[in-house]
Amino acid sequence: MKQNPMLKLVLEMGPLVLFFLANSRPALFRPLLAPLLPEAMLEGEKAGIFAATLVLMISVVVALFVSWHLTKKLPVMPVVTCIAVIFFGALTFFFHDDLFIKLKPTIVNVIFGSVLLGSLAFGKLLLPVVLDSVMNLSQEGWRQLTIRWGVFFFVLAALNEIVWRTQTTDFWVSFKAFGIMPLTIIFALAQVPLIMKHEIKEEEEAVGSRD
Rank of each mutant, 00 (worst) to 15 (best):
M1C: 09
Q3I: 11
M6T: 12
K8S: 07
K8N: 12
L9I: 10
M13F: 05
G14T: 05
V17N: 02
F19A: 00
F19Q: 01
A22W: 04
N23A: 07
S24G: 04
R25N: 08
P26K: 00
L33P: 01
P35M: 05
L37W: 06
E43R: 14
E43A: 14
E43W: 10
G44M: 02
G44D: 04
E45W: 14
A47C: 10
F50W: 07
T53K: 07
V55W: 09
L56K: 10
S59C: 10
V60S: 07
V62S: 11
V62F: 09
A63M: 08
H69R: 15
T71I: 07
K72S: 14
K73H: 14
K73W: 15
P75K: 00
M77W: 14
M77R: 11
P78H: 07
V80S: 10
I83V: 15
A84W: 02
A84N: 11
G89S: 01
F93E: 01
H96K: 12
D98K: 11
L99P: 04
L99N: 07
I101A: 00
I101M: 03
K102Y: 04
L103T: 04
T106I: 14
T106V: 09
N109P: 07
N109K: 09
F112K: 03
G113W: 02
V115Q: 06
L117V: 06
S119Q: 02
G123F: 12
K124G: 05
L125V: 08
L126P: 07
L127E: 03
V130F: 09
D132E: 09
S133A: 13
N136I: 08
S138L: 05
Q139I: 10
E140L: 09
W142E: 01
Q144P: 10
Q144H: 09
L145P: 02
T146F: 03
V151N: 06
F152A: 03
V155D: 06
V155P: 01
L156N: 09
L156V: 11
A157W: 00
A157Y: 00
I162C: 07
V163Q: 01
V163S: 00
W164K: 05
W164R: 05
T166R: 09
T166S: 12
T168L: 04
T168H: 04
T169C: 06
F171A: 11
W172A: 10
S174W: 12
M181Q: 13
T184I: 11
T184E: 08
A190G: 14
A190E: 11
Q191E: 14
P193W: 15
P193R: 15
L194Q: 13
M196I: 15
K197P: 08
I200H: 14
E202I: 14
E203W: 09
V207T: 13
S209N: 15
